[in-house]
């Protein structure tokens, strides 16, 4: 098992949890968590994944 993939998996898992909480119970506190925490976490996970793909493509000499 490679530990490199775990940070973004945990990040996106937390974002999914916060999003589920907001959709299930759309109170102001949950909305704030979704807007100000879950969304940036999703953006961070996407960036980490894109960086990983680019790194691998460079390693293979595609880029």
């Amino acid at each position: 098992m490679n530990s490199r993939k775990h940070p973004k998996t945990i990040i996106i898992f937390v974002a999914y949890l916060l999003s589920a909480w907001f959709i299930f119970s759309p109170d102001p506190f949950q909305m704030a968590l979704f807007v100000f925490v879950a969304q940036p976490l999703v953006a961070l996970a996407i960036l980490l994944y894109i960086a990983e793909v680019l790194r691998e493509l460079k390693k293979k000499g595609v880029l």
């Binding site: 998996t9 996106i12 974002a15 999914y16 999003s19 999703v42 996970a45 996407i46 980490l48 994944y49």
Partner: peptide, 9 residues
């Protein structure tokens, strides 16, 4: 997991 579903969420 890291692109399609997060954007949908």
């Amino acid at each position: 997991t890291f692109l399609v579903l997060p954007v949908l969420v």
